[in-house]
Structure formats: structure tokens, C-alpha cells
Write a protein that binds this DNA or RNA. Structure first.
Length: 331
DNA sequence: AAGCCGGGGCC
DNA sequence: GGCCCAGGCTT
């Protein structure tokens, strides 16, 4: 490409950068981690924000820092204590990875490539931390940026490599952290998935896809498989019976015994050495890929049990709430 | 490349 | 009920 083409392209980007950065400085939300300089806090916010809306992440950010104010404090903690703070936030591998990270390094590395090696950090989070905490000019491509770039360029199904290249090309190198946050802020508040507010967009002139925003990118289909399960609530001589869940689903958290499929109740009773149980109701709970219907049973003669301070998932809280509400006189 | 992994708010 | 969120890991 000739010099003329380079200059034209460069000026185009500068106009885009000025328009978006100007909009960002005027309209950005006041979030707890904005203005923070400590890399640990930036990292925590970015991990909490993985597949999680800002409003949902904020209380966890404060709770987490109150208990684990530094990387060193996190490293000394038990995993169960970390999960206790994380309970209810979902995607618990994030908490396990963060804990392992703290035990792996005593200080956060300052480059994208080194951050990418840490557990729980992929291309997005490594780029976000590198740019926001350390000023490295690397584009953070999240769902917002993917959607906006697809609309801007009228791309229906861009590849991750294509998106990263375009994002890096557009990035404002003198303010990479602000630029990345400006991109995501626009996506989260203006360039919305369903009903984009193009009339409020500072860079609508740059957008080739604004006539058909729903077309870029092509929506992906999700399948939720219905699953039938049975849960058993038992308050035995040692209190409420809980098991520590292993595996990937809710791994590390505690919960009441659950079995899926045919003969679930019989397997539960046999496993716990119990004679019989009575049905108290149904709990429905949706995961990303499953839609769970849980028949909740309890052992007759049950007293009230509590989970102590063990970390539980929302599913188990629902089950316990149903079983124990049923034990109360007035429901 | 495709599946798996939570929970919640919005339509 | 579907959609999708400041994604990453595993297979």
C-alpha cells in the first residue's frame, strides 16, 4: 500500500479514536475498579466480569477484596474460603483458577504474553489486564467488541483472529486501557445486542452494518437439554447431610445428594442407608446447557438443618429453602 | 471446532 | 421461554 493509503487510514482511525474516547470520558459509568492502579484489583474485576454483567459483579468485587485484599492474602487462604466468597457468582472454575494463580506467582507479570500463561486468563483477560494495569497496547476482544466490530465491518461470522487483528488495528496506542474500556462501554450501553441505540452512538458514521444490526454477527444457537433429577434433604445425627461436589459442575462447592435419571431416588436411599423419604416439591434450575427439574425429597422426622459456612450453589440453596420452608408451620 | 461451565436480567 | 453477558478450559 502506498503512502497515501496509509495516511488516509491513519486519519480515519484518529477520528474514530477521538470520537469514541471523547464519548467515553463524558459518559463512562462510575465503576468500583475504574481508576484503580493495583493490578490485582484490575485482574479481580476482569475475572469477575467474565460472562457476567457489571451489576452482578460489583458486590462480589467488594466482598472479595474485603476478605482477600491482596494476592498474598489470597495465596494463604483455603480454597473453600475463596469459594465461600464466590458462591452465587457462578463459573466456579474462576475462583479455583484465581486461587491457584495466587499460589503460583507472588507478583502479577506485566506483559500480555506472560499474563496469558496464568491459570484462568485467556486472550481477553490477559489483554484487559495488560492494557488497563500496565499500558500495553493490545486490544481486549470480548463479546461487546466482537459484536461492535462485526457491525462496524458488516461481518456475519468473523473468526477470532480476524477480530483480534481489526481490534488491534483500531486501538488507540497512546491510551490502550481507556480505549479497550471505551469499546466495551459502548457495547454495554449503546451498541446493545437486541436493540442498539444507534441515534446515541458517537461513531455511527463508521458503522457499515447499522441498517441491519441484528445480522452482525450471526446469532449462535444454544441447546438446553432437559434433565430430571432427585435431591434428598436429610438432617441426620450430625446435622444436615452435605457432600462436596467433585468434577467440573459446581466443583468444590457443597450440596445435598443428587442423582439423575431413572431409579434416582432408590440410588440415593441406598447410598445413604435410608429406608424411605417423602416428596416435598419440585425445584427448577437452568444451567447454560441444561434445564434441571429436581424432585426434592426429605427424610421423615427431619429437624431443621443448616449448612454452616460451607459454600453452596444457588441450586442447593433453592432445594434447602423448599425443604425447610415445608418444615415450618406456616410454610 | 465444539462442549462444558452459573447465574441473572431483560425482552 | 429465549437471549446473552467485560470467556476459559477441555476434548
Amino acid at each position: 500500500m502506498g503512502e497515501r493509503g496509509f495516511i488516509v487510514g491513519s486519519q480515519l482511525h484518529t477520528s474514530l479514536q477521538q470520537a469514541l474516547l471523547g464519548w467515553y470520558y463524558q459518559h463512562k459509568r462510575n465503576l468500583p475498579w475504574r481508576g484503580e492502579t493495583e493490578a490485582y484489583r484490575i485482574l479481580l474485576s476482569e475475572v469477575l466480569l467474565q460472562q457476567t454483567r457489571v451489576e452482578q459483579a460489583i458486590p462480589y468485587y467488594h466482598r472479595f477484596l474485603a476478605v482477600f485484599p491482596s494476592l498474598a492474602a489470597l495465596a494463604q487462604a483455603e480454597l473453600e474460603a475463596v469459594l465461600r466468597v464466590w458462591q452465587g457468582a457462578g463459573y466456579y472454575a474462576r475462583a479455583r483458577h484465581l486461587h491457584r494463580l495466587a499460589q503460583t506467582v507472588s507478583e502479577l507479570p506485566s506483559t500480555y504474553s506472560a499474563l496469558l500463561e496464568l491459570p484462568g486468563l485467556g486472550p481477553y483477560t490477559a489483554a484487559a489486564v495488560a492494557s488497563i494495569a500496565f499500558g500495553e497496547p493490545v486490544a481486549a476482544v470480548d463479546g461487546n467488541v466482537r459484536r461492535m466490530l462485526s457491525r462496524w465491518m458488516a461481518w456475519e461470522a468473523p473468526s477470532p483472529k480476524q477480530l483480534q487483528a481489526k481490534a488491534d488495528e483500531l486501538l488507540a496506542p497512546e491510551a490502550p486501557g481507556d480505549w479497550n474500556q471505551a469499546m466495551m462501554e459502548l457495547g454495554a450501553t449503546v451498541c446493545l445486542p437486541q436493540t442498539p441505540r444507534c441515534e446515541r452512538c458517537p461513531v455511527a458514521w463508521f458503522c457499515r452494518g447499522k441498517a441491519e444490526p441484528g445480522r452482525y454477527p450471526t446469532p449462535k444457537k444454544r441447546v438446553q437439554t432437559p434433565v430430571e433429577a432427585v435431591a434428598l434433604v436429610w438432617v441426620g445425627p450430625d446435622g444436615l447431610y452435605l457432600e462436596r461436589r467433585e468434577g467440573r459442575l459446581l466443583g468444590g462447592l457443597w450440596g445435598v445428594p443428587v442423582e439423575e435419571g431413572a431409579g434416582a431416588l432408590e440410588r440415593l436411599l441406598q447410598r445413604l442407608g435410608l429406608e424411605r423419604a417423602e416428596r416435598v416439591g419440585t425445584v427448577q434450575h437452568a444451567f447454560t446447557h441444561r434445564k434441571l427439574r429436581v424432585q426434592v425429597y426429605r427424610v421423615p422426622g427431619n429437624g431443621l438443618g443448616d449448612a454452616g459456612n460451607r459454600p453452596l450453589s444457588r441450586l442447593d440453596r433453592k432445594i434447602l429453602e423448599l425443604a425447610q420452608a415445608d418444615l415450618l408451620p406456616c410454610g
